[in-house]
């Protein structure tokens, strides 16, 4: 039977919560094994980053939605963290199988990788709950938390966020079709616009690529 928009939204939220009920707020034993296999154990830096970004997210969420909603922001962030660890473990298992390695020191000690992955997980949670994060008493104005809001919150470049999307979708088979389409729209928005904004890492990569190819052209300014 066709669902009303409200019923569809409630089902999506329930589905997400059910999936994440079995996930943990901390790295699993399997994840800890991967951390221990690293040349430099990233566990402490990962935990500290998660803690730091919780405060950042809670603050920005409260600024966007209302100070009274800070705890709602914290709850949504915590769901995002569970998804983050769950997807990270799945990604590492796939990479271990693909590359036949167990030492992912460079990847797991990379701040950009973790921030991008966590941002993607939190984006999934925020998008599942929808645009309106306010209490339903009608006293608050609607607040737009839709993408690319999360990039501003975590001070993340769109191009770096883009890098995790496809692997995220591959690593999390429980993502609904609606959520996959949402992430695909994020990809398109990045490819068509956000990745080309001033300061994007894309320009440096293009420049390096041209230098490797031996071309001596001066890179065009980003404004053109």
């Amino acid at each position: 039977l066709p669902q009303t928009p409200v019923r569809a939204a409630m089902n999506s939220i329930q589905q997400l919560i059910m999936i994440l009920n079995s996930a943990t707020d901390k790295p699993s034993d399997t994840l800890v094994r991967y951390f221990n296999n690293c040349t430099v154990n990233p566990k402490d830096s990962i935990l500290k980053r998660v803690e730091r970004l919780e405060q950042v997210f809670k603050k920005k969420f409260a600024e966007a939605v209302g100070q009274g909603c800070a705890e709602i922001g914290s709850q949504r962030y915590k769901l995002g963290v569970r998804l983050y660890y769950r997807v990270m473990e799945s990604m590492l298992k796939s990479e271990e199988e693909r590359l036949s390695v167990q030492n992912f020191s460079k990847l797991l000690n990379g701040n950009v990788f973790h921030t991008s992955l966590l941002a993607c997980a939190v984006e999934v949670v925020v998008a599942t709950y929808g645009r309106n994060a306010s209490p339903s008493d009608g006293t608050s104005a609607e607040t737009d938390l839709s993408f690319p809001w999360i990039l501003n919150v975590f001070d993340l470049k769109a191009f770096d966020f883009y890098k995790v999307i496809e692997s995220f979708i591959k690593a999390e088979p429980s993502l609904t079709r609606v959520m996959i389409k949402h992430l695909e729209r994020c990809e398109h928005q990045i490819m068509e616009s956000l990745a080309w904004q001033s300061g994007s890492p894309l320009f440096e990569l293009i420049k390096q690529s041209k230098e490797r190819e031996g071309q001596a052209d001066q890179p065009e300014p980003s404004v053109t």
């Binding site: 990604m91 796939s94 990479e95 693909r98 590359l99 992912f104 460079k106 990847l107 990379g110 950009v112 990788f113 890098k163 995790v164 496809e166 692997s167 979708i169 591959k170 079709r177 996959i180 389409k181 695909e184």
Partner: peptide
């Protein structure tokens, strides 16, 4: 994932994307 276009090739994954190969 039927409608989603997977762009990564067979030998590509998250390690390459973050320059960790």
């Amino acid at each position: 994932t039927q409608d989603y276009h997977f762009g990564l090739e067979e030998g590509e994954g998250i390690s390459e994307l973050f320059d960790c190969d």
